[in-house]
Design a binder for these strands. Structure first.
Lengths: 339, 339
DNA sequence: CGGCGGAATGTAAACGTTTTCATCCGGGTT
DNA sequence: AACCCGGATGAAAACGTTTACATTCCGCCG
């Protein structure tokens, strides 16, 4: 049915070995025969059978990506970065996303076994035991945004700490006497790091003020509730720094209901720079994370691990964030045109 | 190194054929031996080598998804739907996205050759010639949201026409004497269909009014410009229906600058129901498209084509949309809490 | 009691590559 | 002239499955 290496060999009057060599760029073949074989292969539309090749080379040229139940921009951007880098390296991308719990993730991980040369794993469910149980020893893997730190695996994290630290500092520098933090879920790694960044910046740059954290869970609703509670406090209000943009949007709604003007009565900042952040009124000051870079770096990292199997594992990299100042923090007045 | 079917066979004191049969559920094997083999396989952590299996069965259990340079919510939701359906069917998902032009898409399509049993293709660049040149005859493919209609391929479209028709009708029913349409890019299939839906609804439900279309290109900026132009018109202003939400957001900004109140002075609606639509003020009336369902249906469609190779191709399905009424059209006043 | 049929299992070919090893050939060295 | 060396090519094994076909075994019927 399909054209195989044999057909090309027959047509070119050489052995299959020569065809293989010619097409794979082995030096042990005359330029002239290489040309001839190449042109015949092209004419016949020969495409090497990837399964047969994988069988013998033990390489699939494929990277697996294991992702949790992820929504919106973050997911797209991450995949974009991974995909771009994979294409540049001639690798394919096998995706398995939308994993709600550890069991689903485990099943997905096992299902990928043997189909991929390496893995990119972003999941709140991973820990040492999970990986030992579900990931073959020999498969290189890069953990994304994971609290889990092991000499076995490379880890690539967002600098949540640094971003929150920088934002807190920015708010204090802008003249606010104090900053209140709206926290994320307690068991969330990102949330923990962001809170730590906030606390340390407060300790350093506002030693007289006291750090104050109100609870939240990253949802818009929890931000709304937090905002409503904060609006009752004594004036002047401290600046509010929400652990993510969705909660900041919730705060914004609560403040609007309480007839509080942002940023005149209360300054507000978020974290993530989701697209909505540019379009709420006033536009939200936030911390931007270059998700595309996260994906790209992750893929390059696992590709490197595949190429050099003996290489030391366990490198931990951190991806910098940047403060994006918009109208909501009062740092800059640009209410009309989105950035 | 890795454990193969031979190891299992040796351990179980049977032939490899029996192991294969037992693990693949062939009826020609005693329940007792099946049990024994299964437990040994599990103990040895045997996983069939997928490449070897593909080599002989000519199946990869993998679906390829070819996507253009897609951003945000649409991409995530689409992949989510595809992934969910794929998992349910035990299929893997090979993704190649971010294709800017036809050449890139062609290269990606060819690279997937032999690695997938079927393809999901969403790309403005596909047409008959493109597919003939880059897709093997035998590979089933489903085209998503494509103007190209051929008896060769299944096509799955969003009901842009019906959604725009329904929205226009909704605005007219709500008491607006006329509706002005802000169009999308001229060569865009979605935009064309939406405009057609608008025109036909106008002709049918507002025969005395005249359909009016101002140009746009789906960008927020083009919506802003359109909104500014419209704000100059004679009062009372007709309702404004933008061909997508981003342009509607742009209109909103222009109206705010012109001190026009929405919906009191001008009613506004968009299309897509992007997340931002809920958070702008006032919240945007729009047309919702169930992208997850699009992905799910597409995968089920290609899976069906793979299972029954002889089946008739060329079925065209259409995915219904629904009008989502929020504050911006004045149909319902719910300015505070997002839906 | 012999043969037959069907169920369970085994044997080996086939899938399409890559790669090791062998072969061949021409030319330079001794 | 004999030898060797190195470069180009070919033959065949190997990768780990599935499956067509062969074999074995056992009970049952004539």
């Amino acid at each position: 049915m399909a054209v195989t290496i044999r057909d090309v060999a027959r047509e070119a009057r050489v052995s299959v070995a020569s065809v293989s060599r010619a097409l794979n760029g082995s030096p042990a073949v005359t330029d002239e025969t290489r040309q001839r074989i190449a042109s015949i292969a092209q004419r016949l539309r020969y495409v090497p059978h990837s399964a047969a090749r994988s069988l013998i080379t033990k390489r699939t040229q494929t990277i697996g990506a294991l992702l949790p139940d992820l929504y919106g921009e973050f997911f797209s951007e991450l995949i974009r970065g991974i995909d771009l880098a994979a294409r540049a390296k001639g690798l394919h991308l096998l995706v398995s996303s939308s994993h709600g719990d550890a069991d689903e993730a485990a099943a997905a991980l096992r299902a990928m076994q043997g189909r991929v040369d390496g893995m990119l794993i972003l999941s709140p469910h991973v820990d040492a035991a999970f990986l030992r149980a579900n990931l073959p020893e020999s498969t290189p893997a890069v953990l994304l945004n994971s609290a889990f730190d092991s000499p076995q695996f490379d880890v690539l994290n967002i600098d949540n700490y640094g971003g929150a630290y920088a934002m807190t500092r920015h708010l204090l520098d802008a003249g606010h006497a104090s900053v209140t933090f709206v926290g994320g879920p307690e068991d969330n790694f990102d949330a923990q790091q962001r809170e730590r960044g906030y606390r340390e910046a407060m300790a350093e740059f506002a030693p007289k003020a006291v750090a104050k954290v109100v609870a939240g869970d990253f949802s818009e609703e929890s931000g709304y509730l937090a905002g409503r509670a904060l609006a009752k406090n004594a004036r002047p209000l401290p600046a509010v720094f929400a652990a993510n943009d969705m909660m900041a949007v919730g705060c914004l709604r609560a403040f609007a209901e309480s007839r509080l003007r942002v940023p005149q009565d209360v300054a507000l900042a978020g974290f993530d720079d989701i697209p909505i952040a540019r379009y709420v009124v006033p536009a939200l000051t936030t911390v931007r994370v270059r998700i595309v870079d996260l994906g790209r770096r992750a893929l390059e990292c696992v590709a490197a691990a595949i190429e050099k199997p003996g290489r030391a594992r366990g490198a931990a990299q951190t991806l910098a964030c940047e403060v994006v100042v918009r109208a909501s923090s009062g740092g800059e007045a640009k209410p009309s045109k989105p950035v």
